[in-house]
């Protein structure tokens, strides 16, 4: 039976939600698994993160090194490749760090790689069955992963609900085993995202537009609706990439996290990166011309219409 490891993401000494999610995922791979948490970092924040991990995992491996103070994917990969035994299954959150570090780790460990897993059906022999999504969530697939030589798996945040179970694990200091951590990529600093003139995180009602708005000129249609509703305009990422609205209006994992009462998703397909920015269970209204758009699976109310016709008609009816 392959040993299972979980990479623990933490910030300011506190483990992230993914720590509990990976513990649940490990059990789905093998109910009898005794997964080991790996926590990398430096100094006192690392120690408190290890304490947090020990509440979820029976074994915690601590890797303390000044070069690991910031999670630079290049450095963390080097350390993990050194300490993880061949043939192991390594679980990593599918976030911007996991995307950076994990694919290369699978090569260094000569292990299979499967990314952005949303479900796990368990091992049969060395074959692990998992669920993924393709085509921006429009298709689901079962994949089989040959774990005979180990596997590196990244798991979509939020896909594995913590089961509330706890542990009182012991921390083992593995810092001496990490070897040389020199890397050809050096972390310099984090530049915080600019704050814009509106704060979409404070709005009760958001009229949010996606690529379905089709053209810069059509943004005004959403602005008119928002005005009529007393709402604020937000958007999905492609609208910001196209420079039709400023970055501070973007909802999602690489944008803002919003907690409105009502969220009007207009021409938004419903990618997990977008939905990752929606918190507090708002009432979601989705208008999309494609009846199969994934957004309809998470919305409360769905309407199949062309937003370029629907929004002006709604504005007029409300009396904008």
């Amino acid at each position: 039976m392959a040993q299972i490891f979980a990479y623990i993401a933490h910030k300011n000494g506190v483990v992230e939600d993914s720590a509990a999610e990976l513990a649940v995922a490990a059990k789905k791979i093998d109910a009898a698994a005794q997964p080991t948490a790996i926590v990398t970092g430096s100094g006192s924040t690392l120690d408190s993160a290890c304490q947090g991990a020990a509440k979820l995992y029976a074994q915690v491996w601590k890797l303390d090194n000044a070069a690991l103070a910031y999670p630079n994917g290049e450095v963390v990969r080097k350390a993990l490749a050194k300490i993880v035994p061949a043939g192991s299954i390594v679980l990593i959150p599918h976030d911007t760090f996991g995307m950076d570090m994990a694919p290369g780790l699978s090569i260094k460990l000569d292990a299979a790689y499967a990314a952005d897993i949303v479900g796990l059906d368990g091992l049969s022999g060395a074959t692990l069955k998992a669920v993924r999504q393709e085509f921006a969530g429009m298709a689901h697939t079962h994949v089989t992963i040959d774990t005979a030589k180990g596997a590196v798996l990244t798991l979509r945040p939020g896909s594995f609900q913590p089961d509330g179970s706890s542990a009182s694990g012991s921390v083992t200091d593995k810092s001496g085993d990490a070897g040389d951590l020199g890397a050809k990529r050096r972390f310099l600093q984090v530049v915080e995202a600019e704050t814009g003139d509106v704060d979409i995180t404070k709005a009760d009602v958001l009229v949010s537009v996606g690529r379905g708005i089709e053209d810069a000129e059509n943004i005004s249609i959403a602005q008119e609706l928002a005005e009529a509703m007393g709402a604020v305009v937000s958007c999905s990422r492609p609208i910001v990439d196209a420079k039709w609205l400023e970055k501070s209006r973007q909802v999602g994992t690489s944008g803002k996290t919003v907690k409105p009462k009502v969220y009007m998703a207009m021409g938004i397909s419903g990618s997990f990166q977008h939905l990752g920015g929606l918190k507090g269970s708002p009432f979601i209204v989705a208008v999309n011309k494609n009846p199969k758009a994934p957004i309809f699976q998470v919305a409360d109310v769905g309407i199949v219409e062309n937003i370029l016709e629907f929004m002006p008609a709604l504005t007029e009816k409300i009396g904008g």
């Binding site: 499967a114 697939t141 089989t144 992963i145 030589k149 979601i284 309809f296 219409e305 629907f310």
Partner: peptide, 27 residues
Amino acid sequence: RVKRADYFTPVMGKGAEMLEGSMEEKI
């Protein structure tokens, strides 16, 4: 070492309540 076994349509939660009828009625 990773193989696609099949494509499938997942059993989802309740999903959205779809509003039907003319555009007027939906509005």
